[in-house]
Simulated assay, not measured.
Amino acid sequence: MGYETSCEFFQRTLAESVNVAITLYKVMIPTIIVVKIFEEFGGVVWFSSFIAPLMNAVGLPSEMGLVWATAIFVNIYSALVVLINTDVTMSVAQASILSCMILLAHSMPIEVGLAKKSGVSVWWSILTRVGGALLLGWLLHLTYSATGSLQEQAKIIWQPSMETATSLAAWGISQLQNLILVFVIIVALIFVLNILKVIGIEKLIAKALSPFLRLLGISKEATNLTLIGITLGLSYGGGLLINEAKKGHIPPRDIFTAITLLGLLHSLIEDTLLMLVIGADFTAIFWGRLVFALVLVGVVSRLMRLIDGKRYERLFYRSVATA
């Protein structure tokens, strides 16, 4: 690779990073502001009282409604702060149920917004993630109740920092730092992806995984980006998928399947570790979540093939290609 070619490589990487970051920021910045206002006016507390009866249906104390509501509208870290401030003890089974529900449905305003940008309908994103969380929670509750397993008290082995922004200025600085970190991560991801393309590893990975992902209806073009979302988070994998969707490189139905999978199964490493420290069972939050997501998306993928090309497919997804 000559000097001029190297310069072009880095210029292309930076340009692609800026495009992806702008796409993410257009969703994230307005949503962060709206969620802050919603939270300040008591919207999260109101919603928690609305879903409290559902907590009992999955075997959780009603107080966990506020924890899950915080996760849905804000993020996992904020939900953990709420959790450790509730004077309620839970069994390992209950901690596992709550953790799985949080893992499937959290940071919804931003992540549903990203899904919409990729062409996936808002109602579908909400249904699969909130509905999927309740379904998995209910299935786990039935399993634990029938077997009597994991009934010992859950132990929180780590507590998140209790420091919160005391002013709008402090909150704003914190959000700005997060946005800068997002850009740095995006640059690193795209740099690695482009390197993989140059040396041909991307093709080898896609070839190895394509038979498995094909069963879920995810094309080899979306393989690497889907894996990034699964391991690092929907914001990163989703942002890259949006970029490819706008270029028309990946068919809309493949984007739909990939985004649906990422909604249920993303940030598999970091988020799993977070749930472990509040006493959840690893088998439930890792393997249970993994199997549930793959089975559900596999079924959805088969059903979506029945409406492929039909007029009402737009109820679920649409093309966002600008080319």
Rank of each mutant, 00 (worst) to 15 (best):
residue 246 K to P: 11
residue 53 P to H: 10
residue 183 F to W: 07
residue 159 Q to K: 10
residue 308 D to H: 14
residue 232 L to N: 07
residue 68 W to E: 04
residue 168 L to T: 14
residue 5 T to M: 13
residue 1 M to K: 14
residue 44 V to P: 06
residue 177 Q to I: 07
residue 253 R to G: 00
residue 24 L to W: 01
residue 46 W to F: 13
residue 84 I to W: 11
residue 28 M to S: 10
residue 26 K to M: 15
residue 323 A to W: 15
residue 109 P to I: 09
residue 70 T to I: 08
residue 2 G to I: 08
residue 305 R to F: 02
residue 197 K to L: 07
residue 108 M to P: 02
residue 307 I to S: 01
residue 111 E to Y: 01
residue 31 T to H: 13
residue 239 G to Q: 02
residue 11 Q to P: 00
residue 211 P to D: 13
residue 174 S to F: 12
residue 38 F to L: 09
residue 310 K to N: 14
residue 288 G to K: 04
residue 47 F to K: 06
residue 140 L to G: 03
residue 84 I to A: 15
residue 108 M to E: 03
residue 130 V to Q: 04
residue 155 K to I: 08
residue 118 S to E: 07
residue 168 L to C: 12
residue 307 I to G: 00
residue 49 S to C: 10
residue 282 F to P: 06
residue 43 G to C: 05
residue 115 A to G: 13
residue 271 D to S: 06
residue 112 V to I: 15
residue 23 T to R: 07
residue 280 A to R: 02
residue 223 T to V: 12
residue 251 P to V: 10
residue 170 A to W: 07
residue 258 A to T: 02
residue 87 D to T: 04
residue 123 W to H: 08
residue 258 A to R: 00
residue 175 Q to C: 14
residue 260 T to E: 09
residue 234 L to H: 02
residue 170 A to M: 15
residue 126 I to C: 11
residue 218 I to H: 06
residue 162 M to H: 10
residue 15 A to L: 00
residue 196 L to A: 09
residue 261 L to Y: 02
residue 89 T to G: 11
residue 27 V to I: 12
residue 124 W to D: 03
residue 233 G to T: 01
residue 234 L to S: 02
residue 142 L to T: 11
residue 244 E to T: 12
residue 211 P to R: 13
residue 275 M to F: 04
residue 230 I to V: 11
residue 189 L to F: 08
residue 135 L to V: 07
residue 159 Q to Y: 08
residue 224 N to H: 07
residue 68 W to A: 04
residue 185 I to E: 04
residue 176 L to K: 07
residue 24 L to N: 01
residue 292 F to P: 01
residue 261 L to Q: 02
residue 277 V to N: 12
residue 208 A to Y: 13
residue 174 S to R: 14
residue 21 A to L: 01
residue 276 L to Y: 06
residue 17 S to V: 05
residue 125 S to W: 07
residue 185 I to G: 02
residue 295 V to H: 14
residue 23 T to V: 14
residue 51 I to N: 00
residue 15 A to W: 00
residue 266 H to S: 13
residue 153 Q to F: 12
residue 17 S to A: 12
residue 279 G to F: 07
residue 129 R to I: 05
